[in-house]
Design a protein around this nucleic acid. Sequence first.
DNA 1: ACAGCTTCTTGATCTCGATCAATCGCGCCG
DNA 2: CGGCGCGATTGATCGAGATCAAGAAGCTGT
Lengths: 237, 237
Amino acid sequence: MTRPHDADPATPVHCRTCQVRHGGLCEVLDPIELVRLAGQARRTRHDPGETLAIESGEVGYANVTRGAIKLSRVLRDGRQQVVGLQFAPDLMGRLFSSESPLSAEAATEVELCRIPRSVLEGLVADSERIKLRLLAQSLRDLDAARDWMVTLGRKTAAERVASLLLLVATRTGVADSAGQLALDLPISRADMADFLGLTLETVSRQISRLRHDGVIVVRGHRSVVILNQPALQARAG
Amino acid sequence: MTRPHDADPATPVHCRTCQVRHGGLCEVLDPIELVRLAGQARRTRHDPGETLAIESGEVGYANVTRGAIKLSRVLRDGRQQVVGLQFAPDLMGRLFSSESPLSAEAATEVELCRIPRSVLEGLVADSERIKLRLLAQSLRDLDAARDWMVTLGRKTAAERVASLLLLVATRTGVADSAGQLALDLPISRADMADFLGLTLETVSRQISRLRHDGVIVVRGHRSVVILNQPALQARAG
DNA sequence: ACAGCTTCTTGATCTCGATCAATCGCGCCG
DNA sequence: CGGCGCGATTGATCGAGATCAAGAAGCTGT
């Protein structure tokens, strides 16, 4: 992926500067397919906390072009488990409906490029690569879910929190001015707890511990700089 | 699925009486595709505890035609998490390799119908339905993994054990002579613990509790009869 | 700048499940 | 039939993380 933008004149104008032109679903589309898709796809913006009706009613897919999305499942009595985070440029959604529906919520400010089910079905019927791309995405999600099952089933509280920091750093972290890996947590302590299978107090204590031990620096709750990455990795189990 | 066996004379002989002719991958194959596949597929038998080299080296798929398979992932220090159970007639495996490899082990006596990667790639290239079938299987596995994340992250020990009994009952349970739902646990207490994120002692205690409370009857460690299914469901969270 | 809210942190105590430690019971083989 | 061995059960105790309970620190808007 050497081209940051797409210079081909056949590429739709609003895809040329899209952050995920070369990610998500669009990376496997040629300009002709892009035109076909771009006319039907709807770009939408969402504030943190907004529920995204992806799975209900109209089943389809959406490219996450900016921000992070929280997928969760709740028990009848209200206990909640966050079962996944989707970051740009992930492809989110599914072709077939599921018996165990998830709720999807914008964690940060989010931009989506939504693809209606009918349009996607047409593209899927015609394109080899799209079908394989959807399969690849679901396999990637499956790997991520199984990795996280290890975290939930077998790691200590300290290891879980370290694992989450590394997960977010891997997906959205950037090297700051001093060359350290910096990241912004897309979710609150309460949501972190629901992702990690802990309480928010335990999450807070573990973050404080990492701070006191000089492994990370925290600025204003959401902003984290990793000072000692090997130490963090060692603490992640 | 009204036909227990396939009477079409074009169907390969050893597929006609196969338990999963109408399950797994084969349910979407026509007799011509079946012939093409049957010549290449290798049927193998495995004893409990045997490691199945599905994911290593030659990546491919296998139909589970009998028995149950345990998929697990281990941490460097030896802690283990079972991330899935595959029962007949599940389709197991993947087209693309993964960075986080699983180990697959026969839980019970198992029969597989292995499909070499090269053969499957050929079929996938030619058949629409096969591609969608592989996508459907991976989405089903993803749903199962996310459901289990709720169990691991948010349920109590009692709820986890009840959830496992219901899961096995759903996949392999049969009504016994008295009309009660009966099942055979495919895994030891230790493996149940590794699936549930508990210790084997806790699993044993919870099973004893269900027994003392008259919810289930256990005969010889592995055989379970569910006496009160609503009560079990209520205890599963 | 300062209310007033929400979110996070920290502390004290309690509890569920882990750990340590005997048995138990069933299958296997001499 | 009896001894041996492995997996399961049961008991006693411990401890990580939950729960209960104050405060502190950020973000609003005025």
